[in-house]
Nucleic acid binder design. Sequence first.
DNA 1: AAAGCCTTCAACCGCACGAAT
DNA 2: CATTCGTGCGGTTGAAGGCTT
Length: 495
Amino acid sequence: MAGDQEGSPLGEEEVGSGGKSGGGGGGPLKKGPWTSAEDAVLIDYVTKHGEGNWNAVMKHSGLFRCGKSCRLRWANHLRPDLKKGAFTPEEEHRIIELHARMGNKWARMAAELPGRTDNEIKNYWNTRIKRLQRAGLPIYPPDVSMKALNGSQQSQSMGSLTTGEASQSDLLQGNSFEIPAVQFKNLQNPGIYPYPPTYFDILPSGSLTRNLGSSDGQNFMFPTMHPPKRFRESETFFSGFNDDFSNAFPALDLYDETCENNPYDLYDDICEKNPQPFEWSSSYDPDLSTNLTSLGGLPGSHALSNGNFSSEPSSGAMKVELPSLQYSEAQFGNWGSLFPMPSIESVDTLIQSPQTEQIQVDCLSPSKSGLLEAIVYESRNLKRKYDSCHQASNAAVECNDVVGNLPLNPYEAEWNVYGDPTSPLGCKVHPEPVNQIATHYDGKEETPNQMDLSRPDRLLDADWFGPDTERGREQATWRDALNALLGEDINSSKK
DNA sequence: AAAGCCTTCAACCGCACGAAT
DNA sequence: CATTCGTGCGGTTGAAGGCTT
């Protein structure tokens, strides 16, 4: 059968003007969609000769397709072990997990999804990304973030890796996580958002608005966003995450009736009912160690600190592969809230080239040492003070004594320069010029925003900025006072 | 009903890498 | 050691079909 068709597949409906793969045999190579006749020829050939040596297919089968084309056709469509049809919710969940771990490693992901091809996964992901992007939804659901977090913490504490899992460094280098903490911006309509009031209450009233309002119309998430169309995906997306999601956002339960337990339906609903975009942003979180991550942020992720995830391979240059960031909603939120939103096309540039401005979120993420917990604890105390003050007066000015009397405020100077913090406490979003390079004592150069802010010891290390610089001195002061406060030497916690 | 827009997905392209020569 | 070849990977493109107006 296939033999009969040798030569014919090329047939009448010829050919593109030849790829560069240069046509061996005789005659131009056919391009474009495969015909069933061509498929039959290829199947017959592979059945007889097996896979591989794809360039020989053309010679021996009469198929005027280059080897690459044959391989692709076989691998993506003709292989007998291929699974056809749409991804199941389980597969979708798996893809999301895998992408969180691997980034755009489609082939590796395909290897873990039997019957699925890299092309299929890639297309699925890109489609999905576009959808989520349009809707301003996080690329990774919270539970995936949590899983990754748990995995990384576990691997860290155990000093070993879960079998088959990317190492922590892989995760970091792969820029796997880009989910900024979530916060809806529109405080005027809190009821419409699924987030618990606590996520809003923690901000001094008006401070967010103030900050966002200063961004010349770019403070909203989707300056150019059209009302999102329905998410077809929402029917399956998150299907496996509802529990986690609800845990993260208990108030979602209130909306379950209308959203049928699908938070993405809720988002959709929100978008349709209230076209005002919401915002992703990092916010001060009194329960930093839990809520932050449950909101999708990841400790150790620079996404928290930068709205970016600066890959920092320990040595050598590395191609910055930020699948998540390439499409990161952070651009709509964290960045978009304070700065002109970068175009999607420019994100790569944004990542790879020094930025003139960048948000730095001084959220210290749960760390490996106990130091951070101590800081968080202190922050909570301070936050309580602030809250009581704020509730009493609702006037930020009157809280100044609380804020101003913080035992230490390493960024006070910066806030003086850049404006009011969005929070009186530890987690503040503020722009900071990062185009200057700080040289660490070990000679490594990093911009301040590239510092691993998940390591308070590093954050507080005056040497990062040089002992003679203003910030270095500030940090030295901060460090010393923290030492006193915590009764331990921060540096002693460093390895 | 038709035109325009959008989404999906198959296929192509360029590049990288390892093996063979 | 340099070159060629085969293969794999990831990004991009364009056609087809669906959807909206």
